[in-house]
Design a protein around this nucleic acid. Sequence first.
DNA 1: GTCTATACCAAGATAGAC
DNA 2: GTCTATCTTGGTATAGAC
Lengths: 224, 224
Amino acid sequence: MSPRPGRGRPRLLPGKIAANPRDQILAAAAELFVSRGYAGTTTREIAEGAGLRQASIYYHFGSKEEILAVLLERSVQDRVEQAGKVEAGMGSVTPDVGLYALAVSDMSALVAMPYNIGMLYRLPDVIASPVYDRYGHLRGDLVDRYGRVAQRAAEERVSASTGEPGLGELLVQMVESVVSLRRDDRVGSSTVATIAAACLRLCGVAEDAIEQAREAALSALARA
Amino acid sequence: MSPRPGRGRPRLLPGKIAANPRDQILAAAAELFVSRGYAGTTTREIAEGAGLRQASIYYHFGSKEEILAVLLERSVQDRVEQAGKVEAGMGSVTPDVGLYALAVSDMSALVAMPYNIGMLYRLPDVIASPVYDRYGHLRGDLVDRYGRVAQRAAEERVSASTGEPGLGELLVQMVESVVSLRRDDRVGSSTVATIAAACLRLCGVAEDAIEQAREAALSALARA
DNA sequence: GTCTATACCAAGATAGAC
DNA sequence: GTCTATCTTGGTATAGAC
């Protein structure tokens, strides 16, 4: 684990020695897990994607599960961090604007992740995996955060008529749908805007207010 | 394939000889595919769930993939059929009511499916499988149908500001989120109502109109 | 640090007895 | 119709050379 130049037997295919091999493995694994599932992906395929041999993976990771654990951890942390920053930078702002900003920044995090690994949270074999236990509660925190912001933004009649699942769940589902949509074509800022607006509509926010929230949130995010 | 009573060697575990073995296998497979993924499920586990031996599965199905194909086909067809019935029975009804009814009946189909197999459409290893090709377009038809109904129900400003993904995609995502929520706790009629109302809100329908659509749709569905 | 070679095991599927 | 037994393949992971 001491990557000094010139060390070790040369790779068979010296194609992509650019980035460090650990990240190459993670990137290849992410792409494959998302497109074929965790159990459906073999370490040989990961190795091929990373440009080295199957056994060489085990110099960088102890097991296939460990690769998954690192990917999971990275992706939740990105989202939680983003959400924290937004909440901190939105102290004096209306709830509408706060929710819009939260949704946009969360989706940005999701969309910015290489190979759509936000999708990992929808894979049953990932969720069933013991490594998921260590990171699943972080997603729960995110749901709570959405719930709190939405509670303040929502029209009274909406929050009254929304039982279980709570608004938080519903909104996270809505936001996470970007990962499914990303399958088809690239997700642009207009898609993000559409979904963010949909989040406010879910809370019963009026069209005019949505438009205002959009403007305010985007400029606030630009400053942050 | 000629199931006559008294034929064949007796099972080791005569626990569940009630239903026919083919359905037992399908049920066990559905449960496992959904909870552990397709690739993550072994034929031995399916056999155990169905109360027979691994090799015996191959008397009823040609391969593991064939089991998946049957499950996929069943689940889409259920949804499409339901949607067709609703559209037929809603000729003289407002778009709001039509959309509410479509969402409710579609979710009912999803929720009624044993072991939540509507979830299969979210599994990457299923989507990547060659058998998916034969049934994926049916889900596309469903998206189109939602799109058409929503177009008529939606407030003008909403349809104008909704680009890609279209309203159809968005609504199907919303509706299909019941399968994810079903993981946590049981999905009751109030959950379905909450999500159906959310669909109308997504289209910019006002609260009063949503309430009216709910009443009208439920009584119309009760008649059908 | 990456390779080749291989141990070891579990998977899907088949053959033939009962 | 279901069983036991087994074939074949392909998986993860390790050992040791380079």
